[in-house]
Nucleic acid binder design. Sequence first.
DNA 1: TATGAATGAGGCTTCATTCAT
DNA 2: TATGAATGAAGCCTCATTCAT
Lengths: 207, 207, 207, 207
Amino acid sequence: MSRDDKNDETTLSPRAREQRERILAAAQHCFVKYGFHAASMANIAEAAAMSAGLIYRYFPNKSSIVLAIIERQSEMELEDIRALGASTDPVDALMECFVEWSRPRPDMRIMNAALFLETSAEATRDKQVANAIHHADELACTEFRQWLEKPAEEGGIGMSPAISERRSLALMLLVEGLAVRAARDPKLDTELLREALAEVVHKLMEE
Amino acid sequence: MSRDDKNDETTLSPRAREQRERILAAAQHCFVKYGFHAASMANIAEAAAMSAGLIYRYFPNKSSIVLAIIERQSEMELEDIRALGASTDPVDALMECFVEWSRPRPDMRIMNAALFLETSAEATRDKQVANAIHHADELACTEFRQWLEKPAEEGGIGMSPAISERRSLALMLLVEGLAVRAARDPKLDTELLREALAEVVHKLMEE
Amino acid sequence: MSRDDKNDETTLSPRAREQRERILAAAQHCFVKYGFHAASMANIAEAAAMSAGLIYRYFPNKSSIVLAIIERQSEMELEDIRALGASTDPVDALMECFVEWSRPRPDMRIMNAALFLETSAEATRDKQVANAIHHADELACTEFRQWLEKPAEEGGIGMSPAISERRSLALMLLVEGLAVRAARDPKLDTELLREALAEVVHKLMEE
Amino acid sequence: MSRDDKNDETTLSPRAREQRERILAAAQHCFVKYGFHAASMANIAEAAAMSAGLIYRYFPNKSSIVLAIIERQSEMELEDIRALGASTDPVDALMECFVEWSRPRPDMRIMNAALFLETSAEATRDKQVANAIHHADELACTEFRQWLEKPAEEGGIGMSPAISERRSLALMLLVEGLAVRAARDPKLDTELLREALAEVVHKLMEE
DNA sequence: TATGAATGAGGCTTCATTCAT
DNA sequence: TATGAATGAAGCCTCATTCAT
């Protein structure tokens, strides 16, 4: 969370912000394609159409880029979850997630299954990543609970906190399992998946 | 699956098989600790208490070790799933998985959450890994279905194939979500998790 | 000595001279702090509160700055020696040198032990530096001799040229040894040093 | 002083010791030629006729090589001082030092004026270097004092400790000044230098 | 005049892999 | 069979220098 003031988004010139964005997009592309470790700064530089040296004007080192990507990714996850709550049919929202995550070249979207899994694995080894992830997960979990507890008069289910605690966890397992599936079997029969999801999700939303 | 004949397990001398085993155990240890890319051949050689050069007598290169580890891992997954079916209480079996996966140093066991996730991510990029994984997943899924469909007279639930197809998929999502949780939040409250799992699993086992 | 005409001090506008001065002061500061090689143009630019690019309007490259600093330094050395001759007690003057040279942050003064030593070492490798230094040393030596030979009626010692030739060399060894000491042992007991210097200097000033 | 056990000279294989020696000789050569910072690992590798990577089997990084060279150099300095005490005429010994130090290519000897000066300058900036140097200087100073205090019946001067404290410091200044001269003016008239040294040294050896 | 973004070469270091022994 | 020395390519990063603005 604590960023170098130099790169603090609030004090960045438009140009600098633009460049950072370009680099992050390139990095995201390369990380998806090769993985965090296998992607080289040269790969990223090429994808960003700039020299490798220039990247270091905007990021102090490679791992800060990784971290920035992880933070961005976490934000996307949160948005996904919010979309899930906002959608008429949560199953549709989940399916959309699956399809997007398993797309071979998700250029436009930060969230990507392989990245998500690698990030999760990295949390096991890198304290900084672990912290970033933990924070993101807390937000995600809260979001799930608020969704389940939203009163009926607001169009929600109005689940009791005692139950929502368990159910939100179950939902997280499901969503994260979806990410694993997206990576391991991107060609999974979507109809079958939809049915399976529909069943579980509905069971989980009953009081 | 198509292995170099030289290393085909059926033609291997006992000595060779032993050495391969030693190397794989060491590699597993290192991959868990550092990740596939960050673990070096030197790390593995040291963990195996042999010279780096010797490893190349048993494996043509690093990625063949990775592949072998992935295959072994898949076998362990299968065993986990079988244990799940065999246990009196599947929830207990799941909890055991979670605890083992999230252990900081699972020296004795091949299956490990971080490894599983990294492997899954790698499937996105490496065709060979993808194939190995796909095969493993099919076996796993079949196992789940057989468990759900086991006739009542044999102590099973006797679920109908039409339903078990969906439910086995849901179970996989759950189990794989568990792996993600184990990596992202190893200190997760196990009591809460048990309750959440119990609820979903029981719902999924109802006709 | 042969400078680029563009930067010849005689043809420089006051503005340009001012800028050069600012750069040199910054460079001196950085060279003392980091050493000739470790100090970067970016460091110097920051210390001079100007852009890196602008420096190149006043100096063709980094090594020309190094050379300019060396020349300035030589001038300071000469002043030190003159101060030594002019002071009532040469030992006091030497002590002052030592203290200034070994100061951690001699911001105001160009002469600095570490810089002096690095410069001397560089003379071994760079012909231009060697020339600059040789010239400076000749002036310094002459200064010493003139001081020793100054007639008694002018308040001097009136040493004979035959002897002053040797003694001035001995004095240089002493002063330069002082620079080495300042770098190697800046916390050297100044009282002891004063006594040691007093003894030798007085012996060297006897006919 | 505290070395990595792996590189502890007492546990090194003959081969390893040989290689370390080869690397150090090459490094010494390059450091003299280019300076500590300007000499690259590639330079050293080439001079040692081995690949750059191989150097890292024997030294963990460049600065450990620098430190090793500094330690060796300090040992040579000590030997020089001992030779000075042991020689019939200390002035001869000093002259020999000067000549050796100022040789353009002192391949056989570690001690070299430029290296000595650069080391001294580096002590200003690097704590590890400062420590190594401080230790070396203490030994050197002790050596000087023991020489001056050696009783007459053993062929010494038998100087009193009170005086030797000052005189040994003066001698160090002189010797170190000699190093500076060797770097700054390697073509200095040796006859003149000898006379100058003879005079001061003899004065310093009188009670 | 002044900026600072941009480059490209080069520096240090690691590591999979080979090979003489 | 086993070692571990050796290599070379590649990775990350820094920096003097240039150039469009």
